[in-house]
Amino acid sequence: MSLLDVGPRVEGFAGELGGIAAVGSLTAPDDLVRLVDTTIEQYGRIDAVVNGAGHARNDALLEVTGQDWHDGLDMLLLSVVRMARLVTPHVLAAGKGRSGMDLGCPAYRGLRSAPCPVARQLVRP
């Protein structure tokens, strides 16, 4: 298991689970590259990805700035696209093809992860 979080506590948590961790942000492409590279070095493969980014700013429509919208899209959508693009070559190289890996996006409310249509499209060869 490989975890990424903005706070250093993730390293202790990953250690308790027998995994590895990186401190970084889903919105920083270099942090995602580092996480994927470290995961491949440690485990040799990636079987599943769950993006759990939290939620974007949730204010009244006229109080949310254009930059807030961009930041939300970067966190909630582009982080999924970036991660899918990074892991897909590894999935294809492992011969897992179309249905060999699940890219999940946690539901906005609740704890269950659901298949992410955007990510599923990106993983198709």
Rank of each mutant, 00 (worst) to 15 (best):
M83R: 06
G66E: 11
L62N: 15
A53I: 03
W69N: 03
D71E: 08
A60P: 01
A84G: 15
G66F: 08
L76S: 09
G52K: 11
N51K: 06
G72C: 04
W69L: 12
D59Y: 04
V80I: 14
D74E: 12
W69H: 14
L61T: 13
M75V: 07
E63D: 15
M83Y: 10
A53S: 11
L77R: 08
A53C: 05
R57E: 08
L62D: 15
H55V: 04
G52D: 08
N51R: 03
V81Y: 15
S79G: 01
R57N: 06
T65N: 10
G72A: 12
L77K: 09
G66W: 05
L61G: 08
D71A: 09
N51T: 09
V64M: 12
R57K: 12
M83H: 04
L62S: 15
D59P: 03
L76Q: 14
W69V: 11
R82A: 08
H55K: 10
L77A: 04
A84K: 12
L78K: 15
H70F: 10
D71C: 00
N51I: 14
Q67P: 00
R82L: 01
G54I: 03
M83K: 10
A53V: 06
S79V: 00
A56H: 10
A53H: 08
H70M: 10
G52R: 10
D59C: 06
S79R: 01
D71Q: 09
G54Y: 12
M75P: 00
V81C: 04
L78I: 10
G66I: 02
A53N: 05
G52T: 13
E63C: 01
G72R: 01
A53T: 11
G72S: 11
M83P: 02
A84I: 03
A60E: 09
L62M: 13
S79K: 03
N58S: 13
G54T: 11
A84H: 09
E63N: 14
A56R: 10
A60D: 05
N58Y: 02
N58C: 05
M75Q: 11
N58R: 10
D71L: 02
H55P: 00
L77C: 06
L62T: 14
N58L: 00
L61I: 14
L78A: 04
A84S: 15
L76H: 12
R57I: 05
Q67I: 00
H70Q: 13
A84V: 03
L78V: 12
D71M: 01
S79H: 04
H55D: 07
T65W: 02
L78S: 00
D74I: 00
G52L: 08
M75K: 11
Q67M: 11
H55Q: 11
T65G: 10
